[in-house]
Amino acid sequence: MSPFDSPQDKPFDAARGKPSTALGARADFDQLTVDDVSRHFGRRRALSHISFRADGGAILGLLGPNGAGKSTMLALVATLLRPTSGRIRYGERDAGAHGAALRAAIGVLGHDLFLYPELSARENLEFFAGLYGISDGRTAAARALETAGLADRGDDPVSSFSRGMRQRVALERALIHQPRLVLLDEPFTGLDDASTAALGLRLNGLRAGAAIIVLATHDLDLAEGLLDRAVFLRDGRMIHTADRPGALRAMYRDVMTRANVASGFSRTDG
């Protein structure tokens, strides 16, 4: 129970910021399995009976309107919340026993960006590189700025950035430790067309690098063509899944109409 003996604080390979796998510093897995997971807040059913699998080298989209439970699902997978019932497995592991090792393998882009507005982009990136145990944080931060296309603005405070620029820094912050599992909450918010295209390229690059990517969005047009699997959520329930989905918008409309009809019937049934 002592706070000091959790298995974190293992050194990372300096040059690339990758974990030194020889030490087994962080959990490695190539599959995320969500098995009949429910989460309640008091009497509010945020999620009920969700099951899906996300594989390495694939992008899974959590789609649905606001309040469907997408963010809660991401928080559960990120180990920030514990499920009320059901299991989330990372490869063969459960979240409980491998807290820090698991967190070292997860990168999260939150809806609230997780950046200190008073600090410059570079300082933000270096700070988080340090927290993730990357010994050469400076190089990692410089490379991340390069990738974000903000190498020349790196020393300006984040508060002076536009929403799109912040979003790009936040994404690189989430990816600075080259996570195995990437969780993105509405990553397209505030991005212009060029940035959206760049984000698409970045995600494809991660997919090619065999990362497991879970992306929550309500923006179907931007997710179009990017997803390998789509999970549709509504009112905390899974109403449809599709592999290699095309024509998302039509599918979404269809799925939501059917869900409306279904819930309408059950309501008249009592």
Binding site: S6, Q8, L80, A100, R103, D112, L113, F114, Y132, G133
Partner: peptide, 14 residues
Amino acid sequence: QAETLRALLLAPAA
């Protein structure tokens, strides 16, 4: 404000 405490808790740091 930017949920940065969450980010601190998400990191593998002790």
